[in-house]
Design a protein around this nucleic acid. Sequence first.
DNA 1: GCGACAG
DNA 2: ATCTTGTCGC
Length: 221
Amino acid sequence: MLVKTHSWNVSPQEAVALQRRLAAQVITEDRLDQIHSVAGVDVGFEEQGKITRAAVVVLRLADLSLVEQAVARQPTRFPYIPGLLSFRECPAVLAALEKLTVMPDLLLCDGQGVAHPRRFGIACHLGVLTDLPSIGVAKTRLVGQHGPVPDERGGWIPLVDKGETVGAVLRTRTGVNPIFISVGHRISLVTALHYVMVCTTRYRLPETTRAADKLASGSGK
DNA sequence: GCGACAG
DNA sequence: ATCTTGTCGC
């Protein structure tokens, strides 16, 4: 699939300025068609972090069966800085997405969407550059506060930062730590929660994320 | 100045 | 994220 891009050869200061500019393009309401396929994206590292390995898996929403998958490896060229994760991981992820022969209808990204200091986490960045609806699925919090999360599967509570609801803390499995969901692009929070639940069957994380994680860290191709 | 801090 | 063995619990 074709994706837009911009220079990644930027300093942390320039990256912040770029986020502020691109954040204006994020759409936080539903602008999506019928969803038939969902892509999971994740990144792993090799050789002590020297190499970034991005993986993308496309699953059929109806039964979560595999449609296509792709991997891209590149030298790592940006450090991990909280708030600037996308500048470290996006280049490899975009390379993996370009290898796909089918365009997924929705993107589930490993990390935050608008639950970010400048409301532009990696899910927003990937959503804007691909122009695909996207959702941020994170295992831990970056910003925001929240009250107690309901114990039952499917229960959730708003994640609030500076007086603004930026996401939700969702219990995907009873008795298991919740995950942090936020809008990436072209989707509302409630719709995002719906699709995350549809993709989550018997584990804490969505099958899309789990499949992408295996591809990103495993030794396969 | 101190503490927090996606992956 | 990654480096790493066994261990606790359902």
